[in-house]
Amino acid sequence: MQKSTIVKSIYLFVLLGYVLCPFRLFAQDRFDVRASADTDRIRIGEQVKLELTARVDPGKLKEAGLQMVFPSLPDSFNHWEVVDRSALDTVTSAGTQEQLLRQTLTLTSFDSGRWEIPALKFEMIAASGSVDSAFSAPIGIDVNTVAVDTTKAFKPIKTIRTVAWSIWDYWLYMVIGAAVVLLALGLWWYFRRRPAKAPAPPPAPLEPAYDRTLRQLKALEAEKVWQAGNVKEYYSRLTDILRTYFEEQFGIAALEQTTAELLQNIKPVTILNQQRDKLRALLSLADLAKFAKLQPTPEEHADSMQKAVEIVEWTKPAARPAETPDAEGLKQKA
């Protein structure tokens, strides 16, 4: 008696769980799936449209935490091949809360016979991972061969036919070729008729440091700078002309050195060291005029210019003797 009571209780709980299961309720009330084909017969290689639909209530789906998953068919199954798959389309019914989910598959078959598209599984997946399924009804489709009239004689294979040549088939290539030829002719004509460039004038010979220094000293003297009361400017320009000459002629960094450093560094230059006393007197007087506000006499101004000219003249580079034919013959004999 007790065993019978236990069996009845277990049966009752199972029945209640089955009835109260949200999947079952949803599947019975709001889960309607279908699979339909646009034809029930095709010829080999023709296509058939298979439409999959599911009518659901999105409010119920959201409330139950469920997600609808359409069937996933392989590219080839049971004598059928999937040619194309459309995207999942959603249509909302007017005046109701229901939605129609729809997808169209394009199938074909290359085997003659009656082949069945099996029942397709639609799944409802809960957030917890539980899955409930609904299946569509299977669909049978006849795949027929092409009718051949065997009473007629077989025709021979036709020979290869040649297509008549037409110049218009190559018009694009001819236009491109003509454009290239015209471009080449235009470039040739342009370069042929273009006036030749006049040769650039030869660069003016550089003025020797000796000549330039004498010219600058004469220009300074002609400006009468100290006569106008600009004693400091006069001695600054005079010493700068000499220092620049020393740098170019003897390679001494005269512009960056003091008077004492310059007098010390001219010792290795014998020809310049011979004018050491004149140079010392000139630089010393210039330093006093520039930095100590000394006012030299007119005679001292003129004497400073004279000393500068004598120093430059004394250090004038020796002229290179011109080679005569006799001298070249002596060199060759040697």
Results as ranks from 00 to 15, higher is better:
residue 215 R to G: 14
residue 260 A to W: 02
residue 243 R to W: 04
residue 243 R to F: 01
residue 275 Q to E: 15
residue 242 L to V: 02
residue 245 Y to V: 04
residue 287 D to H: 02
residue 244 T to I: 02
residue 251 G to Y: 04
residue 279 L to F: 09
residue 259 T to C: 02
residue 264 Q to N: 09
residue 301 H to E: 12
residue 295 Q to D: 02
residue 223 E to Y: 15
residue 270 T to P: 04
residue 261 E to N: 11
residue 229 G to D: 14
residue 307 K to R: 14
residue 286 A to Y: 00
residue 233 E to L: 15
residue 240 D to F: 08
residue 247 E to N: 10
residue 306 Q to P: 06
residue 283 L to F: 10
residue 289 A to M: 08
residue 230 N to S: 14
residue 304 S to Y: 10
residue 321 P to L: 07
residue 278 K to N: 11
residue 223 E to N: 12
residue 239 T to G: 00
residue 210 Y to T: 12
residue 231 V to N: 11
residue 239 T to L: 02
residue 258 T to W: 11
residue 283 L to N: 00
residue 320 R to A: 14
residue 319 A to T: 05
residue 250 F to Q: 04
residue 316 K to P: 05
residue 300 E to C: 05
residue 243 R to L: 00
residue 312 V to I: 10
residue 206 L to G: 09
residue 298 P to W: 06
residue 301 H to Q: 10
residue 229 G to C: 12
residue 247 E to C: 00
residue 230 N to Y: 15
residue 225 V to K: 14
residue 264 Q to Y: 08
residue 272 L to F: 07
residue 296 P to G: 04
residue 310 E to F: 04
residue 265 N to C: 03
residue 265 N to A: 10
residue 275 Q to C: 02
residue 324 T to R: 09
residue 246 F to G: 01
residue 310 E to K: 06
residue 270 T to K: 13
residue 296 P to M: 02
residue 249 Q to H: 04
residue 206 L to K: 14
residue 218 K to G: 13
residue 318 A to R: 09
residue 208 P to W: 15
residue 215 R to T: 13
residue 220 L to N: 12
residue 206 L to W: 09
residue 263 L to A: 03
residue 226 W to A: 13
residue 279 L to A: 02
residue 219 A to S: 13
residue 260 A to L: 06
residue 298 P to M: 08
residue 283 L to H: 03
residue 232 K to N: 09
residue 229 G to Q: 13
residue 304 S to V: 05
residue 299 E to Q: 08
residue 268 P to C: 07
residue 281 A to T: 12
residue 262 L to I: 07
residue 311 I to W: 01
residue 256 E to F: 01
residue 285 L to P: 01
residue 282 L to R: 06
residue 250 F to T: 05
residue 242 L to D: 01
residue 248 E to M: 05
residue 242 L to K: 04
residue 323 E to M: 14
residue 232 K to Y: 06
residue 210 Y to W: 15
residue 282 L to G: 02
residue 284 S to G: 12
residue 280 R to D: 12
residue 261 E to W: 09
residue 282 L to E: 07
residue 324 T to Y: 11
residue 208 P to D: 15
residue 214 L to R: 15
residue 234 Y to C: 00
residue 284 S to H: 13
residue 287 D to Q: 00
residue 294 L to W: 03
residue 291 F to G: 11
residue 323 E to S: 14
residue 315 T to G: 02
residue 229 G to R: 15
